[in-house]
């Protein structure tokens, strides 16, 4: 009985871990918008990163959703250099139980450095 519980727990942990992953897209060309304050210590050190962590709600008649990138202080060019999308187990559950109407949006993006 104890062994079954252990195996079941292991399977659940494996599922949880494998359902949490990220995918990164990076442009070969162009330079990223720099972060002169070097405020990060991860892959994005030196880059001005915009992080989104929200739930988007899609109405019944909409098929998909487009998140628009606008020119801001953290995205001076309004053009993308790097995008990282993260999927989590919770995010997948949310989508399943809301029939796709609620979607977890956990994204990091870095914009192109403006050129003169």
């Amino acid at each position: 009985m104890k062994n079954s519980i252990k195996i079941f727990t292991l399977i659940i942990i494996s599922l949880l871990l494998s359902s949490c992953y990220s995918v990164r897209l990076r442009s070969i060309n162009g330079a990223y918008q720099p972060d002169p304050l070097l405020s990060r210590d991860d892959y994005y050190r030196g880059m001005e990163v915009v992080e989104l962590d929200t739930v988007i709600k899609i109405d019944v008649v909409s098929k998909d959703f487009t998140y628009l990138i606008k020119e801001t202080e953290a995205c001076k060019s309004g053009k993308l250099h790097t995008v990282e999308f993260k999927n989590t187990f919770g995010g997948s559950l949310l989508s399943v139980f809301s029939f796709g109407k609620k979607r977890k949006l956990k994204v990091k993006y870095v914009c192109m450095k403006p050129t003169n």
Binding site: P34, P36, K113, T115
Partner: peptide
């Protein structure tokens, strides 16, 4: 002085 935004050519 950080000059990384000064990139005219």
């Amino acid at each position: 002085h950080y000059n990384g935004f000064m990139n005219i050519h």
